[in-house]
């Protein structure tokens, strides 16, 4: 199975592990992730205003490239996924955006109308490969580990567009954790915000948020929490000392369970 892959800037830089483990695990699962030959930053955040067009152009270029390649577009970073998936939805449903974006892109000879299927790596695991299949391929089950999923905001919301899982009662990461042989721990704060980009200006807010999330995870019995977002990873990890909870990328645990993590 072949897919176009959009890594995004953070995965080329501070979050190289998220990317590397993701690629190794995909290879072990027989998935070919072909990085788009050219891609630009997704913009980091989806614009919540109706009249912002320019920010959406880079996502549309990536979407059009995947379409021309005849493949679905796979993302791994939660932020890239949120932006690209929402822009794709705009390009399917919002005439205002469709017209203006295509006017901009006409010079490049691009016309796009939301044809591409956008998949998060987790959706790839669940819907294209299947957790049962992954369970079969687990070489080193994460036996006895108590792992909490941390969804944050961007994978789930707005649920009508993201359509990955139930926004208040998600199970996709818990099901993955179970497939890897570990014990999933459900805790309420798993879909509450980590503080996001506010960390740049004022660290006190992510600090409070991280404390609430980590304490809740710990109290419900989690030893590790996993995330798909480099910014969540940063905000949580920075304040995890002394909480007894480890913060990891989900791809790291996946690679380890599949037996393809380097040095193991």
């Amino acid at each position: 199975m072949k897919y176009s892959y959009f890594p995004g800037c953070t995965l080329k830089n501070k979050a190289q592990e998220l990317d590397r483990y993701g690629r190794d695990a995909a290879a072990a699962l027989g998935i070919e992730l072909e990085e788009l030959p050219q891609w630009q930053c997704c913009g980091g955040v989806y614009p919540l205003s109706h009249d912002e067009i320019a920010i959406k152009l880079s996502s549309v270029r990536a979407l059009a490239a995947a379409r021309d390649d005849g493949t679905a577009l796979v993302t791994l970073c939660s932020a890239c996924h949120n932006v690209i998936k929402q822009v794709n939805h705009d390009m399917q449903t919002d005439d205002y955006v469709i017209t203006r974006v295509n006017n901009y892109l006409a010079e490049d000879g691009i016309a796009y109308n939301g044809e591409t299927r956008v998949l998060h790596y987790l959706e790839l695991l669940r819907d294209e490969i299947g957790f049962d299949e992954i369970k079969q391929k687990v070489a080193m089950p994460l036996k006895g580990q108590k792992i909490g999923a941390y969804y944050g905001c961007l994978l789930l919301r707005p649920s009508g567009v993201m359509a990955m899982d139930d926004p208040e009662h998600p199970t996709i990461m818990e099901d993955l954790i179970a497939a890897l042989g570990a014990q999933p721990v459900v805790y309420a704060q798993r879909n509450e915000c980590c503080g996001g980009y506010l960390t740049l200006e004022d660290e006190s807010i992510p600090k409070k948020r991280a404390a609430a999330i980590l304490e809740n995870a710990r109290a419900q019995g989690a030893e590790t929490i996993i995330t798909a977002c480099p910014l969540c990873y940063y905000n949580l990890k920075k304040h995890a000392d002394g909480t007894g909870v480890e913060v990891k990328y989900f791809t790291e645990l996946l690679a380890r369970a599949l037996g393809v993590k380097e040095g193991e």
Partner: peptide, 14 residues
């Protein structure tokens, strides 16, 4: 205590 407002989140903990 009647409170004009909503509950946003319930977090079971400890």
């Amino acid at each position: 205590h009647y409170i004009k407002g909503a509950v946003g989140k319930v977090t079971p903990e400890g």
